[in-house]
Structure formats: structure tokens, C-alpha cells
Design a binder for these strands. Structure first.
Lengths: 136, 136
DNA sequence: ATTGAAGTCATACTAAAGTACCAAATCAAT
DNA sequence: ATTGATTTGGTACTTTAGTATGACTTCAAT
């Protein structure tokens, strides 16, 4: 917020200077009218783009971030979450076991627990629900 | 593409008119210099915001649209695609059969064909690949 | 020191998914 | 009218997924 104030103050200051400069330049006849107009146009054009970009990236883009609150809300543990991510990669239980250096039994346990916690009947449904919650 | 050309042509035309108008206004002394400068600044400011918004929404936001080309490239049929969508909703083969008023056998056939076409070993992997291709 | 949560693994089972192969109906395009 | 792609469905089979239950270990917190 402080940063925004400073930036805008500097911006207004710069614009005032530009106004004064352009008036002086026109009156004294050192510069052509076209040039001054073009300069002003370019400066405001860039300012418009800059301000718009800032506001768009900050407000309009809800860049799907992971909802860590929801993960702990659902009481999903570290290991279970790792397994969930592996499922979303399309791995089988055996492949997940190999990836995490665990037995297939352990993966099955984790998957079962995940299904209960996500209130899902299948791993594909778990994926759909997890995406809904934005936890993957 | 045609629309873009028309819009930009009109824009350039408008700007040329503005240039001429401002030059005339300044020379004839009907308007104050500040007013003309402010007018130009505002116009270009708005144009800057407008152009930037357009380009941002079209380029920076990969607003996950479905890649229909890829679907036909993979030779995925209508029915198969319906089944793929149902899988992504987390449905079982039996549930998909009920939803589409088909037998479970038929769904299994479609799923098998989908797995071949998507080069996947499992339905979860099919989902991951389909998302990669942006076809779901 | 005890408790409780997390993680690991096994057995035995049922359910669902997936494969292979075949057969038949539909339907648009030549 | 025939062809070829799509769609539907069946049987028989193998593989994978998921459940239920129990046991053991670790490790942080009381």
C-alpha cells in the first residue's frame, strides 16, 4: 500500500513536469507541436498499459493456488498428500509404491484413508473432489 | 483477424483526426494548451488500457479452452469423448453406463479404446494425458 | 513413562477396471 | 447397394483397486 502511494506521487509529479515542459516548449517555439503531442501520447499510452497490467495481474487472475488450509481441514497427512499427487499423475498403486519406496500395501492404506477423508468412492472421484477443493 | 484490422484502422484514423484538430485548435487559439494536452493524454491513456486488456486476456490467460483439433487428431469419437468426460467426473463404469443409458460392457469397450488412443494404462493416466492435451 | 497420531506392512477378501475376441446394428458417403 | 466407421453388447478372463482388520514402529507432546 505504501509502495502504491509513492509510485503514484512520483507519477503525478512527473506528469506535472511534463505539462510544464510542454507548455514552455510550445511557447518558446523550440519544439514542433507534433513532437510534443506525440511525446505526451506515448507517455500516457505507456502509463495506461503499466497501470492496467498491475491491476489485472493483482485482481483478475486467481492463479489456481493450492488451498493448504483445506488440506489440513480435511486432516490429510503428508504421506497421504504425496499419494494423492501421485494418483493425479495417473500412477497405479504399484507405481506409487516404487516411487515412494514403500510397499503396495502401504499405498492401499493411504489411498483408502484418502477416499474416506475426501468422501470419495474411487480414486478418480477423489481427483475430481480434490480439484474442486483446489488442493491439487 | 479481420476485426482486429478494422479496429486498428479506425483507431489510427481517429488519432490522425485528433492530431489535426489539436494543431488547428492551438494555432487558432480557440482552446487552451492545457486542455488540448489533457485531452490527448486521456485519450492515449484509455487506448493504452484498452489495448493492454485485450492482449492480456488473449495471451497471458491460457483460459483452458478445449483443443478440438487434438480430439480429432487422436481419432476420439463422440461417444468415447462423452465417456472420457464422465471419467473426469469421477464416475465408475456402471455409473457412466446408467448416465448414458448403455450397458457396462459398452462403457468398457469405449474406455479400452480411449486408453489405446490416449496411450494410457489406466483411466487416471488417461485423465492426466487428456488434461495435458487440453481436451478436457 | 504414557498416550496418540502418523506411518508402515501383511493377509484375506470383494469389487471394479481392463483385455481379448466376437457379433450385430446403424448410418453416412460413395 | 456396398463399404467403412461408429456404436452397442456379450463372454471369459486377468489385473488392479479398494475394504477390513490387525500388528508393529516412531516420535512428539503431556
Amino acid at each position: 500500500m505504501k509502495k502504491t502511494i509513492i509510485v503514484f506521487s512520483l507519477l503525478i509529479l512527473a506528469l506535472l513536469l511534463l505539462f510544464q515542459f510542454s507548455k514552455y516548449a510550445l511557447i518558446s517555439g523550440n519544439l514542433k507541436t507534433e513532437f510534443v503531442i506525440a511525446l505526451i501520447a506515448i507517455v500516457f499510452f505507456i502509463v495506461g498499459i503499466y497501470i492496467n497490467k498491475k491491476s489485472l495481474y493483482k485482481n483478475a487472475l486467481p492463479l489456481n493456488e493450492i488451498n493448504h488450509k483445506k488440506i489440513s481441514e480435511l486432516e490429510i497427512t503428508e504421506r497421504e498428500y504425496e499419494v494423492l499427487q501421485a494418483i493425479s499423475e495417473g500412477l497405479s498403486n504399484r507405481e506409487i509404491a516404487e516411487k515412494l519406496f514403500l510397499s503396495e500395501s502401504t499405498i492401499k492404506t493411504h489411498v483408502s484413508n484418502l477416499l474416506v477423508k475426501l468422501n470419495a468412492k474411487r480414486r478418480t472421484q477423489a481427483l475430481q473432489i480434490a480439484k474442486d477443493y483446489q488442493i491439487i
